[in-house]
């Protein structure tokens, strides 16, 4: 019985012809747009998470603490609260780091008469203080200490990035929703055409005593097949685009955002896209009107 229903659905798809093909195309477009925004947002989300994780606040000191009093100073800093970890970086250590960063041009450092770099303390905020507001407050508290020259850090740009990610998500959803609506309409049109071509079959089915389910199910199945096909093409297209763009994009991403690898959807996310396509198609198939019920 089920085989029969599938055969009937395939026959319908063939009859649907060009309209069915354009319905598949629209589903492809809507899911590809949705998917593209999703991939972007997914990767941006990873950037944001990574930077939140790495977040440091750097406290520049007015002068190097007297030998043996560094710990005392750290204790004083810690007293402001909201700090997880601290590391003291002396003037000498800072210079060392600079020398390492300069690499080939390290000789420039040797030409300096005095060490111009200030001593500093690298502060990792406690988890409860690593929100934008929490970090801002921590920076504020640290700045008031007399030993402190300047405090750098904060999450402003990371938060702007996070905001951008949310915006991207919203645009993606909006564009995807509009296209999804168009896709549903296209499937509905395709199915209505199929219904029209199928009305003789449906009349015979009703006359001989087929259940309404048997009469409608092929329509539902051909809609579902259109949706699934559209989703598969969309995922395939996105993956191809991802593989093509990867060699060019990855160094850029790594350099600007510190993201070593751009990822694609996980299998379960692919399943969500395919399921979404199937749902769109099936819905369109169900919406189609025509053929009066017995």
């Amino acid at each position: 019985m089920f085989l029969f229903l599938i055969e009937e659905a395939v026959r319908d798809l063939r009859r649907g012809g060009r309209v069915a093909a354009s319905a598949v195309l629209l589903i492809t477009l809507s899911l590809a747009a949705l998917g593209a925004f999703w991939v972007l947002s997914l990767n941006l989300g990873r950037v944001v998470a990574q930077w939140r994780d790495r977040l440091r606040v750097v406290v520049y000191l007015r002068e190097e603490p007297a030998p043996g009093t560094a710990d005392e100073l750290l204790a004083k800093l810690e007293a402001v609260g909201g700090i997880q970890r601290m590391r003291y970086v002396s003037k000498a250590e800072a210079l060392q780091t600079l020398r390492r960063q300069l690499g080939g041009q390290a000789s420039l450092v040797a030409e300096l008469a005095t060490n111009p770099l200030p001593p500093s303390v690298e502060v990792t905020p406690a988890p409860e203080a690593s929100t934008p507001a929490g970090t801002r407050a921590l920076v504020q508290r640290l700045s008031t200490l007399p030993e402190v020259e300047e405090v750098q850090g904060g999450t402003e740009w990371v938060e702007r990035l996070a905001e951008f990610q949310r915006l991207l998500q919203r645009i993606g959803l909006a564009v995807g929703a509009v296209l999804a609506l168009a896709a549903i309409l296209a499937v509905t049109t395709a199915t209505t055409l199929v219904l029209h071509a199928r009305r003789q079959e449906m009349e015979i089915m009703r006359l001989v005593g087929a259940s309404e389910m048997v009469i409608r199910l092929p329509l539902f199945l051909q809609g579902l097949a259109q949706g699934l096909a559209g989703a598969a093409v969309a995922v395939g297209g996105l993956y191809a685009a991802y593989r093509l763009a990867l060699p060019a994009l990855e160094p850029l991403l790594s350099f600007t955002l510190g993201l070593p690898r751009a990822t694609f959807f996980s299998p379960s996310e692919v399943a969500v896209l395919l399921g979404g396509g199937a749902l769109l198609g099936a819905f369109g198939g169900l919406l189609a009107k025509g053929g009066r019920p017995a």
Binding site: R206, L207, V208, G209, A210, S211, E212, A294
Partner: peptide, 14 residues
């Protein structure tokens, strides 16, 4: 009942 119409029709040839 509407859902029993198919049964009736199975008993009738047209």
């Amino acid at each position: 009942r509407r859902s029993n119409i198919p049964q009736l029709r199975r008993a009738i040839g047209m």
